[in-house]
Each structure stands twice: as structure tokens, then as C-alpha cells.
Simulated scan of single mutants.
Amino acid sequence: MQFPDVLVLFFSLLEQASEILSSFDVGLRQYATNHLTKSGVSLMRGVVKEVHSKKIVLSDGTNVPYGLLVWSTGVGPSQFEVTRPSQGPWIGIDEWLRVSSVEDVFALGDCAGFLENSGRPVLPALAQVAERQGKFLVKLLNKIGKKDGGKAFSAKYIPLGDPFVYNHPGSMASVGRYKALVDLRQSKDAKGVSLAGFVSWLIWRSAYLTRVVSWRNRFYVAVNWATTLVFGRDNSRIG
């Protein structure tokens, strides 16, 4: 009788920053670190210099072997000759998301940052920031279009109303094994509700469920989650 070879898996998480989930509360960051470590994940710090077929090379010369590499990172900004705030390589915008150095050009999302003279900090590079900026910009462009038919250079003669204000609704993250983090503070230094554990996982799943478009799909997703919670994941294969 032949038995398949036993496959031993090792998981490593390589982070460039000094700690994972740096935007979360200190206690939540420590909880996530401890939870991942207990789950068998090796946390490493370093900057990737080269990627080869079976190893990655860090900036300090360390070789990290791997079998499967999952790359999760951002991209660098393209060269764009516009005024930038000194805090980073973003396109400089004012309180109405206008690019100050070019007429009739707006920018939003993580490619844009408020100019220093606006007195506003650079917003976090999150999808919820871009979503709110997009809704604000839609209303603003419709207002400009109705006032003067959307003619070129007409925006500077039209009162634009209240500037864009971002109110952070909070951050959530799953850390595996039915555990999650919920941080409802308005900013990194503010006080607020911070939760971790199974209850946070339920809150995280509930928030995700509200983003599903139809009630039909919400029901299907909820039933699938409940089945997985009770019976575990179905890893069976046919053939």
C-alpha cells in the first residue's frame, strides 16, 4: 500500500514597515501579531530587492526561499509634471480636489494629496476615501455643468460650495480562523472603539454582507458562511 508524501507547509509574511497593520490601534496590532504567530505564520521585516524562481532577495542580502509567492503591494506613481505637496509623490489638489497647476483638472484617490497650504493632511490610501471623493466630484461636476454648460475654464467663476471633508468610518481586517479586528476611531491618534476576536469577525462579515448588491445574493452568501462555520470548508474534489 502506498501513501502520499506528507506535505509540510511553512508560511512567512514579509512586511516592509516596522509592524503589520500600522493604521490600527496598538493593542489590535499586537493581537494580530500574536494570533498570526500562534497560527504558524512567521513574520519577517525587510524590503524586497530581487525575485527569483525559488527565492527572494532582500535589500540587506538575505535570501528567503519559497515555493509559492503571493505578491501584495502597491505601485509607484508615474511621472506627472504638476504641483505636488511636499509630503510625498502625489498630485497636489486643493479642498475641492482641483489640481492647482492645471485648469479644469481634478484628481482623487491615492494618486492625489492635499497641498501644504490647504492645511489638510494626506488622506489614507483606502478605497473608501476614493469612493467618497468620487461621489463628491460627481455632484461638483454636475453643479459646474448646470451653471455654465460645462464650458472650459468656467469652474473658476462658479461658487463651488462646501469643500470635501472626509470622515473616517473605521477600519476592519480579518486575521484568519474566525478572528478579525475592528477599529472605529476617526484617526490613528483619536480615541474610540477597538475590538478584536470572534465578535469582531461577525461585525466584519456583517459589514461585508451589506456591500453585496442584491438580497438574493446576500442570502446565498450568508447561508454559505453559516454552512462553512458549522461544517468547515469543503475541500473535496471529484476525479
Rank of each mutant, 00 (worst) to 15 (best):
L36G: 05
L36H: 13
L36K: 03
L36I: 08
T37P: 01
K38G: 08
K38A: 15
S39P: 03
S39G: 13
G40S: 09
V41T: 12
S42R: 15
S42T: 15
S42V: 14
S42N: 15
L43Y: 01
R45I: 05
G46W: 02
G46N: 03
V47H: 01
V47I: 04
V48C: 00
V51Y: 00
V51D: 02
V51K: 02
S53D: 10
K54Q: 12
K55T: 14
K55A: 14
I56H: 08
I56K: 04
L58H: 05
L58V: 10
G61W: 13
G61I: 14
T62P: 01
T62F: 05
N63M: 13
Y66Q: 06
G67K: 08
L68G: 00
L69M: 01
V70I: 13
S72C: 12
T73C: 04
T73Y: 01
G74R: 03
G74F: 02
S78H: 10
Q79W: 10
Q79E: 14
Q79V: 13
F80N: 09
F80W: 12
E81W: 06
V82K: 06
V82L: 10
T83R: 14
P85D: 11
S86T: 14
Q87W: 00
G88S: 05
P89F: 05
W90C: 08
W90A: 04
I91K: 04
I91M: 10
G92S: 03
D94H: 11
E95A: 15
W96N: 10
W96I: 05
L97Q: 09
S100D: 10
S101Q: 07
S101A: 08
E103G: 00
E103C: 00
E103R: 01
D104A: 03
V105S: 05
F106Q: 07
A107T: 11
L108A: 14
L108N: 05
G109K: 03
G109F: 04
D110V: 02
C111Q: 04
C111F: 01
C111D: 02
A112K: 01
A112T: 04
A112N: 05
F114W: 15
L115G: 09
L115W: 09
E116G: 07
G119L: 11
P121R: 12
P121S: 13
V122A: 15
L123E: 12
A127D: 09
A127Y: 06
Q128T: 15
Q128V: 15
Q128P: 09
E131Y: 10
G134H: 09
G134E: 12
G134Y: 11
K135A: 15
K135M: 15
L137M: 12
V138P: 01
K139I: 01
K139G: 12
K139N: 14
L140S: 00
L140R: 00
L140M: 02
L141P: 00
K143M: 07
I144M: 02
K146A: 13
K147Q: 11
G149Y: 08
G150T: 06
K151C: 06
K151A: 09
K151L: 07
A152S: 08
